[in-house]
Amino acid sequence: MDIVKELLALYDLEYKAYSSKINPTVPQETIIGVRIPKLRRLAKTLLKAAKQADKSEITQVNAFFSELPHKYFEENLLHAILISEMQVFNELVEELERFLPYVEDWATCDTISPKIFAERRPEAELLAYKWIKDSHPYTIRFGICVFMSYFLGDWFKVKQADTIVAIRSDEYYVNMMIAWYFATALAFNYEDVLPYLKDQRLAVWTHNKTIQKAVESFRIKPEQKEYLKTLRIPVRRKAVSK
């Protein structure tokens, strides 16, 4: 199978326009326009072939993993989906470490969701702490996403939130993920997370975005939303000189 040829055959012009709109940082000429369900079906086909292959041969999945950087946006999404399905933890981490420096958009970043992390939380936690200290914005975003996906509820630790709240970045997609993390954490660990907003420990934009996302969430109670609204920080607009 020629993976790029398969992707090009799955293009959808209407979806390409939509995908281009919601992924403004992705070079438009690299977007084919392939819907996620079709990418997942292609991934399933590749993984089935890899499973049936002789252990001594290089599978198409392994060959695809080595072809970095990819040309097309959908190649990166497919890469993210394939990584998420890996079952051998050490091999997963190796591929993640190789792929993350090439991730340059929120969609690819957020598509990486290794199922095995739910079974290997102690190791995943240590990796997440490392990733959020990286210099690459989407590696940082992915590290925060790991904490949000696997370490809320019974797995929440104040140390995790303390580390995330200390992040200061000029990157929009890093700050948006910080806000998303705290808004989601409010739904699962409201009493633990509320002090971060009451004490205004987040940057102003991220603080207010956290409240906005929490108020929009169906998982936050109405009375909690009303209180959160009172914690918004007024932002003064700069006077425009005439």
Rank of each mutant, 00 (worst) to 15 (best):
D110S: 13
D110T: 07
S113C: 12
P114E: 08
I116F: 04
I116K: 01
F117M: 07
E119Y: 12
R121V: 12
E123L: 15
E123D: 13
A124P: 01
A124F: 08
A124D: 02
E125Y: 10
L126T: 14
L127W: 12
L127N: 00
A128M: 04
K130N: 14
K130S: 14
W131H: 04
W131Y: 15
I132H: 10
K133G: 14
D134V: 00
H136Y: 06
I140L: 05
R141M: 11
R141E: 10
R141L: 06
F142S: 10
F142K: 02
G143T: 07
C145R: 03
F147K: 00
M148W: 13
Y150K: 00
G153C: 05
G153W: 07
D154K: 13
D154L: 07
D154T: 14
W155D: 14
F156H: 15
F156L: 02
K157E: 15
A161H: 10
A161R: 07
D162R: 06
T163R: 09
I164R: 03
V165T: 10
A166I: 02
I167D: 02
S169W: 10
S169M: 04
E171D: 15
Y172W: 12
Y172M: 08
Y172D: 09
Y173M: 06
V174A: 04
M177V: 10
I178D: 03
I178M: 09
A179H: 05
A179W: 04
W180E: 04
Y181N: 01
Y181W: 11
F182D: 03
F182Y: 11
A183I: 02
A185V: 06
A187Y: 05
A187P: 00
F188T: 05
N189P: 07
N189W: 11
E191K: 13
V193N: 05
V193C: 03
Y196D: 08
Y196M: 02
K198R: 15
D199K: 11
D199Y: 07
Q200D: 08
R201A: 10
L202A: 08
L202P: 00
L202K: 00
L202I: 07
A203L: 12
V204I: 13
V204A: 03
V204P: 06
